[in-house]
Amino acid sequence: MNPALPLVKQIMEQAINEHATDLHFIPSPNETKIHFRIQGTRKFHSVISKSQYELLLTFFKFKAGMDIGESRKPQDGSIANLFPALGKYTLRLSTLPMLASESLAIRILPQEDFLPLDELFLFPYQLNELKKSAIAQSGLVLITGPAGSGKSTTLYALIRFLMKEHSYQAITLEDPVERQIDDVIQVQINEQAGITYQAGLKAALRHDPDILMIGELRDEATAHFALQSSLTGHLVFSTFHARDAVGTIYRLLDMGIKQQDLFQSLVAVISIKLIPIRQKGIIRRAAILEFLSGEDLNKAIYSRFDFHQQDRNSFKHLRRKAYAYGFTAEGFPKEAAENT
């Protein structure tokens, strides 16, 4: 038996039992600290020795198909169903070189017990707005927010909802494929094999899709191609890193996307934030949404920095509303609610 296996299993079992979404391994000369991210908060978990971490790191890199002998370059990899008894999970791994070692970050991606779309959002009227945007005949729907805000979770739930409601030919392009969806063609981006987002999009368009899902608009070329795809009669969904809905428009324009292209293709920009709430005595996180669609979206595209999100649709207003309704959980105190 691999000497690292008991330690790896112990850490993973604790992480899953505590509903951690991420594990961070931060090495120093003599020890390595382990942190879990739980409910969006990074929490210290434990310390292991230098020798234990070296065994653990080698084990993970080998299982993920990464180069065990390479420590000078960042690497990415994934592992599916490492411990089946703990449930179905995919682990997404990333290493970064340090002076005398490598740090390791692991994202835990559950492959079962998905929350349906109807259970993700705090306010039901926002769920209805999202569904209206998702049934457009063509165009680009962007789900935006910072890392860890629930963009991918929302996107997967939305695709599953649409597939139940309609007989769509749906194709996804992802790096990596985080969760499997029944009856959907999911393509794993592999640049070393020549499967880039651009190449994948060209091939996907020849596959007669009704829906295209692009995991993330990471660069100007992918953004342009997604926009052009949406103009050819396809409904395109993707995620994008931005602080809020209006900030999404600014970032796209700064990437060189023309205002006219945004006007012709964008159906909606939906920005997400997760806030802690209390429901039936249980503390969990729920999503609140800033929407830009219709006339407000057009104003944001053409007004540039002169446009401001209407107060009733802003995160500031929504957080106050959540507090006023008694949803706000511990960790979001009264004074914070009143000042956001």
Rank of each mutant, 00 (worst) to 15 (best):
215 G>W: 09
12 M>A: 12
148 G>R: 08
291 F>C: 04
196 T>F: 06
227 L>M: 11
212 L>F: 10
41 T>G: 06
111 Q>G: 11
228 Q>H: 15
266 L>C: 11
270 I>R: 03
229 S>N: 07
261 D>C: 01
129 E>F: 03
108 I>A: 09
27 P>H: 02
5 L>V: 15
4 A>I: 04
132 K>L: 12
67 D>V: 15
23 L>T: 11
265 S>C: 07
190 N>G: 08
3 P>A: 05
123 F>K: 01
174 E>I: 03
67 D>L: 15
197 Y>T: 00
171 I>K: 05
168 Y>T: 10
214 I>L: 10
234 H>S: 08
19 H>Y: 15
140 L>D: 08
128 N>T: 15
239 T>G: 02
141 V>G: 03
333 P>G: 12
205 L>D: 10
191 E>M: 04
14 Q>W: 14
60 F>Y: 06
295 E>F: 10
61 K>R: 07
146 P>G: 08
156 Y>F: 09
311 D>G: 11
291 F>M: 04
44 F>D: 00
61 K>E: 09
1 M>C: 08
114 F>S: 00
110 P>L: 11
15 A>C: 14
65 G>S: 01
257 I>D: 02
75 Q>F: 10
322 A>E: 00
294 G>E: 06
261 D>Q: 14
79 I>K: 00
254 D>I: 01
222 T>D: 08
338 E>M: 14
25 F>T: 00
47 V>N: 09
136 A>H: 09
265 S>I: 01
230 S>Q: 07
222 T>R: 01
217 L>D: 03
205 L>T: 04
256 G>R: 11
260 Q>L: 13
79 I>F: 01
215 G>Y: 02
264 Q>L: 15
144 T>G: 09
308 H>G: 04
281 G>K: 05
131 K>A: 07
206 R>K: 05
38 I>K: 10
37 R>L: 11
193 A>W: 10
216 E>L: 08
279 Q>Y: 12
240 F>K: 05
271 S>M: 07
326 G>P: 08
90 T>G: 14
173 L>Q: 04
280 K>T: 12
120 L>Y: 08
37 R>M: 07
330 E>L: 13
329 A>T: 02
130 L>I: 13
73 K>R: 15
154 T>F: 02
278 R>K: 15
163 M>E: 12
218 R>N: 07
233 G>M: 01
121 F>E: 08
57 L>T: 05
108 I>P: 07
338 E>R: 14
222 T>W: 01
7 L>C: 11
78 S>F: 00
277 I>C: 04
64 A>C: 06
292 L>H: 04
137 Q>V: 10
121 F>R: 00
59 F>H: 12
63 K>G: 11
119 E>Q: 15
13 E>N: 13
57 L>P: 09
332 F>H: 12
121 F>P: 03
268 A>Y: 02
232 T>E: 03
295 E>M: 08
54 E>K: 15
154 T>H: 00
102 E>K: 03
162 L>C: 02
93 L>I: 03
220 E>P: 03
127 L>V: 05
273 K>Y: 13
68 I>T: 14
162 L>T: 04
96 L>V: 14
147 A>Q: 14
203 A>N: 03
36 F>A: 00
156 Y>P: 06
82 L>N: 06
297 L>E: 03
114 F>T: 11
119 E>C: 12
340 T>Q: 13
272 I>L: 13
338 E>F: 12
291 F>Y: 05
307 F>T: 04
138 S>E: 14
60 F>T: 09
